[in-house]
Simulated assay, not measured.
Amino acid sequence: MEMGKGEKSSGEVEAVASKFPLSVCEMAVASTVVLGFVVGLLCVYLTMPASDYSFLKLPRTLEDLQILRDHLESYTSDYTAQVLVGYCMVYIFMQTFMIPGTVFMSLLAGALFGVFKGVALVVFTATAGASSCYFLSKMIGRPILSSLWPDKLKFFQAQVAKRRKRLLNYMLFLRLTPTLPNTFINFASPIVDVPYHTFFLATLVGLIPAAFVTVRAGLTLGELQSIGDLYDFQSIATLFLIGIVSVTPTLVGKSKP
């Protein structure tokens, strides 16, 4: 029987379907996670006082961030719990789905909560978001990574296999240096068989130096002209020293007989 002009053969349908990396079940999992975050943020929004919240948006520039900081400062003292929960959910959501812009969220933590509370908040949310991304990727990540970054995935897999005996050292090295993007590490780690306990410890410790530098810069948000101003000589020196302190316990432990 002849096919009409608008019809496609089964082979063509399969070819179209194969271009989309996720199955129906995998899409359902991802959609459920998104829905959970949306419901949580909606609950936070409903518990805040009636006001104009048009300023609430993901900051993409330092100007956006300064506007957001100016508005949230008045809410933070009276509605601390709601602001904290909302901040954590947004940061974890961005980390889970590899949405760029978490550096602005780290700056915001410093501006609103100060250095020590800000660093603790950023490390907690960044680690939680990375863990969320890790487990989501474990369920649906392989087809996406194989489709988007096949060469980078092969490189990472080979490096992990080669350094299996000292994997924590290698993962700490990756967190402390820009060898591979953190978002890629989060998503690819379960695919290349990095154990979660190693992933978690390297993330928790390895993110502290960068979090400290970024959060501290948030205290003087008005003086920043660009994101590049975060990494002046003093910041880089601080990052380097904290990185050594972070890695030293692991190196000492490995050197013991």
Rank of each mutant, 00 (worst) to 15 (best):
M1D: 09
M3R: 12
K5H: 14
V13L: 13
V16T: 11
F20P: 05
V24L: 13
S31K: 06
C43D: 15
V44K: 00
A50G: 10
Y53M: 05
S54E: 05
P59W: 01
T61H: 08
L62R: 04
E63D: 12
H71R: 15
Y75Q: 04
V85S: 04
V85Y: 01
V85T: 03
M89L: 11
M89E: 03
Y91M: 15
F93Q: 00
F97A: 02
I99Y: 05
G101Y: 01
T102G: 02
T102H: 11
V103T: 12
V103W: 04
L107I: 06
L108P: 00
A109K: 01
A111K: 00
G114M: 06
G114T: 13
V115S: 13
F116Q: 07
V119Y: 00
F124E: 04
T125M: 08
T127R: 02
A130T: 03
S131I: 09
S132N: 09
F135K: 05
F135H: 06
P143V: 04
I144N: 02
L145F: 07
W149E: 06
W149F: 15
P150S: 12
K154V: 10
F155T: 12
Q159H: 05
Q159T: 11
R164A: 12
K165C: 06
K165L: 11
R166C: 09
R175G: 03
L180P: 00
F184P: 01
V192S: 11
V194M: 08
V194F: 01
V194Q: 01
L201W: 14
L201Y: 08
L201R: 07
T203Y: 04
L204I: 12
L204F: 10
L207M: 15
P209R: 03
A210L: 09
A211W: 03
F212E: 02
T214W: 05
R216W: 15
G228F: 09
D229P: 04
L230N: 05
F233H: 12
A237I: 12
T238I: 11
G243I: 00
K254M: 13
K256E: 11
